[in-house]
Simulated assay, not measured.
Amino acid sequence: MLSKNLKIFRKRKGLTQENVAEALNVVRQTISKWEKGISVPDADMLIKLAEILDVSVSELIGSDVADEKNEDMKAVELARVVEQLASRNRRSKKVLKCVLIFLIILLLFFVFLCVINFATM
């Protein structure tokens, strides 16, 4: 819901992804990822984004703002979005760590082979 709403509200406001990115001090690709649903903004960015687009956070994430009972639902939805982002960040860090470990092992193996090859000469 956030990705679709972000694009709709941004266009209604007459802003480009670049305009929004500059206002938030992020790169344009970040806005693009949010609009494609690849990633989500953290809670602070979500609040700033809502201010830039002149909408409420609940409108941005797709909640109904007409009823005060929905305040709890908005908080739950916002917490879910933030947790989703944190989970993706944790996975990315784990993958990066595994790749780095693999590359270090590969480098050490290459150095070992070079030392053995040089020693036999």
Rank of each mutant, 00 (worst) to 15 (best):
12 R>L: 13
1 M>A: 11
90 R>N: 09
30 T>H: 04
12 R>P: 00
36 K>C: 07
52 I>G: 02
4 K>Y: 10
32 S>Q: 13
36 K>H: 08
23 A>E: 13
17 Q>M: 15
50 A>R: 01
2 L>N: 02
59 E>G: 01
73 M>C: 05
101 I>R: 07
15 L>F: 14
105 I>Y: 04
84 Q>A: 12
34 W>C: 01
113 L>T: 12
84 Q>T: 11
75 A>K: 15
93 K>C: 01
73 M>F: 14
89 N>H: 09
19 N>G: 02
109 F>E: 09
40 V>L: 06
87 S>W: 08
35 E>F: 03
120 T>P: 00
46 L>W: 02
17 Q>D: 06
32 S>R: 10
101 I>H: 03
52 I>Y: 09
33 K>T: 05
117 N>S: 14
75 A>N: 15
67 D>N: 15
100 L>Y: 10
77 E>Q: 13
73 M>Y: 13
19 N>Y: 01
46 L>A: 06
83 E>M: 10
39 S>Y: 06
110 F>A: 15
2 L>S: 02
115 V>R: 07
4 K>V: 11
75 A>Y: 12
76 V>N: 08
88 R>D: 12
91 R>Y: 12
98 C>F: 11
97 K>Q: 15
97 K>L: 14
121 M>S: 13
69 K>N: 14
52 I>A: 03
20 V>G: 04
65 V>W: 00
96 L>Q: 14
98 C>L: 14
68 E>F: 08
23 A>N: 09
38 I>Q: 10
16 T>Y: 05
62 G>S: 09
12 R>W: 05
48 K>D: 12
61 I>S: 04
39 S>N: 13
68 E>V: 12
83 E>T: 07
101 I>E: 09
1 M>H: 10
118 F>C: 04
54 D>T: 07
104 I>H: 02
59 E>M: 12
72 D>P: 00
86 A>T: 11
107 L>I: 10
93 K>I: 11
28 R>T: 15
113 L>A: 10
77 E>R: 14
77 E>F: 07
38 I>V: 15
